[in-house]
Amino acid sequence: MINDEPDARGLVSIALQTFRDSVLPAIPAERRFEALMIANALSIAERELAAKPEAALEAQIPQLCSDIDAGTYDAPERQADLRKVLWELTRARLAISNPRLLDPVPPGAA
């Protein structure tokens, strides 16, 4: 396959930058909420395109869900261990969807 440049990430990135720098300041107040949503959507897309999905981890997720459903993690200490894994998965997704909400220190690391 021939690689065209810039790639999707590069295009989204420059589109977002142009939108923020040149277009957003000129948007009338009654359209500002929508404009901010557009900027937000583009910035999520940009971060997602930059992220490297961990295929090995992804493959284990359905099994993890069935194990949870089956009660494998019901004991309180196993729940605590499970929550550590779930925190990692959630923080990785939050880093894409809304990184401002990430705690600087991950839970349990203090």
Binding site: M37, I38, A41, I44, R93, L94, S97, N98, P107
Partner: peptide, 19 residues
């Protein structure tokens, strides 16, 4: 776009759940 972005709020809801 509003509904689309609501769908992507899941990780923040889940962070509150885990906390």
């Amino acid at each position: 776009i509003e509904l689309a972005l609501t769908g992507r709020m899941l990780p923040e809801i889940e962070q509150d759940l885990l906390r």
